[in-house]
Design a protein around this nucleic acid. Structure first.
Lengths: 218, 218
DNA sequence: TAGATTGTTAATCGATTAACAATC
DNA sequence: TAGATTGTTAATCGATTAACAATC
């Protein structure tokens, strides 16, 4: 009998799983067949117990004294994250960040397939970026339904983000990956994941400032 | 006498401060002079106590019944985050993500100024992206010292990330903003902030997968 | 076998939330 | 004044870490 897996998994755990995956794929390339939590934890600044707890949620099972079979563990983590097959996505906002995402080759490894982009700029509409069509916003509603798109990626400037999200929700998008530095309101049941760079940057610049202050004081 | 401010501020708090800043700047544009924690919290899915606790770390002081003066609060948050003046930074890896960051106009609002980029590709070296020079890696050491650069931005593929970080550390970079989906080893005292998109994506695709599973089961 | 590792339960730690006196 | 809000302390909640029996 499989051990009881908690139905709600913490954000912290979910964000650590891709890190383990990376280490495991490295090990796989090196021909390592088994990996222990101690070995994995060695790559990070937290302990083996943390790794074991995290891996538990994926349903992976290890062997005492030996560890986890790398290939099986990779498969379990990928399936748990939904990375074993690609989810189709639409992107709105073909600016710098939008272009960078459209050009990112490895998203298929991470369960994402951006099939097309939308922009309100008539100059961009009709062109192709990294072989992906830029379409007018008006076409989104129909295409979302026809192509069964569930994920919407928001790469417009902050002031347009809420408007874009409202449209996405109204046409049936289920999950939104937001890059705009704006607080967004979404209805119950819609998944919103923020990938705002400014939040990450805030942590960096604050720490740096704190360090300087410390040095000043001696 | 000012109230006691904790010396170590949690990541969670630091990541919420930019969100408040955005709301406050909106209020400022609307001509609102004062803002209460209740009002700010209304934009998010957490309560006013959370907001008050977060604001406390910035040293901002409010007035009972009235709230916080918006202009003063904006200033306090920006200073606390180190966003009141720009930190110069070097970027390594002029690929898609690198280009997107080089072209991002608003970084000066967030305390960041990318002054130049480096790349090992001779075809890129010598060109300019968004009016910023692409230089050969060899030039970094001297320039870091001469220009007193503290921040290094890593936008190279995962397999090159550790090498780039090692170089950055050796030439005197104090803080690293990493976009590569690789676990990085850094010496004590160096600040490392990860902005890996794959971690954010993992949360999104997992939630989506979980939702589908729930629907399947009825 | 001996001992490293898993799986799991208990203890600790830290962050969030609730409670409430002070205040304008 | 009355009551909304601040500032702060206490209670709660959840995540991390420690402890330890089972195991191969």
């Amino acid at each position: 009998m499989t051990s009881q897996i908690p139905t709600v998994v913490s954000r912290s755990t979910l964000k650590r799983l891709p890190l383990y995956l990376h280490v495991l794929e490295d090990l796989q390339r090196q021909g390592q067949e088994y990996a222990s939590c101690t070995m994995i934890a060695g790559k990070f600044d937290f302990g083996p117990t943390q790794v074991r707890k995290d891996l538990e949620v994926t349903g992976a099972e290890g062997t005492a004294k030996i560890g986890f079979k790398v290939s099986a563990l990779v498969k379990d983590i990928k399936e748990f994250l939904g990375w074993h097959n690609a989810h189709d996505a639409f992107l709105v906002g073909a600016g710098n960040m939008g272009k960078a995402l459209l050009g990112y080759k490895d998203f298929d490894k991470y369960g994402l397939n951006i099939v097309a982009a939308f922009d309100q700029d008539p100059k961009k509409v009709g062109t192709k970026i990294f072989n992906k069509e830029i379409l007018p916003m008006e076409k989104m509603a129909n295409l979302v339904k026809r192509m069964h798109i569930n994920i919407g990626i928001v790469t417009v400037p902050a002031e347009f983000a809420q408007g874009v999200v409202d449209i996405m929700v109204s046409v049936g998008i289920k999950a939104i990956w937001n890059f705009a530095p704006a607080p967004l309101q979404i209805p119950e049941g819609i998944i919103l994941e923020n990938a705002r760079l400014t939040q990450s940057l805030a942590v960096l610049t604050n720490k740096l400032t704190m360090n300087f202050d410390k040095e000043m004081k001696g």
